[in-house]
Amino acid sequence: MTLTHQEAGRTPERPASAPRARRGRRSRRRWAHLVYVAPALLMYGFFVLKPLVTSVQYSLYDWNGIGPATWVGLDNYRRVLTDPDQLSIVGHAFELIIFFTAVPVFLGLVAAALMHGLPQGSFSTVARTVLFIPQVIPLVAAGIVWDWVYSSDGIANQLLSAVGLGGVTRPWLADFSAALPAVGLIGSWVMLGLCTLLLLTGINKIDPSLYEAARIDGANRFREFVHITLPGLRREIGVCVTVTMIAALASFDIIYISTQGGPGRSTMVPGVEIYRLAFTQREIGQASAMAVILMVLVLVTIVPIQRLTQRSDA
């Protein structure tokens, strides 16, 4: 799009020339593009493509990272895909999607819709800042703080006791059934600010005359939200869902800091498991196989969402 636009803009400066010469120039310019992207492409190749390819290569070997490697073909993949423990780990990642994606996108929509109506002023600035702060805090620091919040005498339990819910208090991260949702909520807290901010900018791009027309037709705020805001935000929602889903499936820092996958294996996720396989157990092959499977999983979940929300006919 940008390119066609530039072409059009430049045409007047270049008086009509023979079509042949133009094509020659064009192809030269085509290669000239490559010169500009070459540095980035080299970096991309070295830091993204090469590791990707080596991971695939490692995943076919039994290797401890130092000694000799033995070719095992697809055995590493077979192990990951048939071991119920490993499969439950993948299941946890999908459970986290509820907390990393569904909750923040829903709450983000509500928050954005509410804040949209507010006049520009200190309140909306403060609200936006408060919501966005978790994005700025390093996840490791957040993990440590939440560790305290969830401890036996932490704020979470103090608040629950204060409102008369002393019966449900527990050391959240030590509880087998509560640990995964508890860790997931940390993710919701982190992702909410990002989603709200993205959606808020999206709302501001929607043509105000649409709202005006709806109001003249007698629509209330809920109807406005469903019929104007939601469809208008389709692309932004797509971005939110994509980014947060990748964060859920590839989550590492929060879990590593707060629970290390425990208690038992109740919060173990692929990211931590890959790290553990590679650096604690020194099973580079199996870790690589798990990493490749994780990448495929991310692609399989993300691509349909992209197709659905980024269609150009919208």
Partner: peptide, 19 residues
């Protein structure tokens, strides 16, 4: 580029030290 890289790298010997 990706394909060349893949071929070039997988053509290499197994990772790790010699026995």
């Amino acid at each position: 580029l990706a394909v060349t890289a893949t071929v070039a790298l997988t053509a290499c010997s197994a990772p790790g030290a010699d026995e």
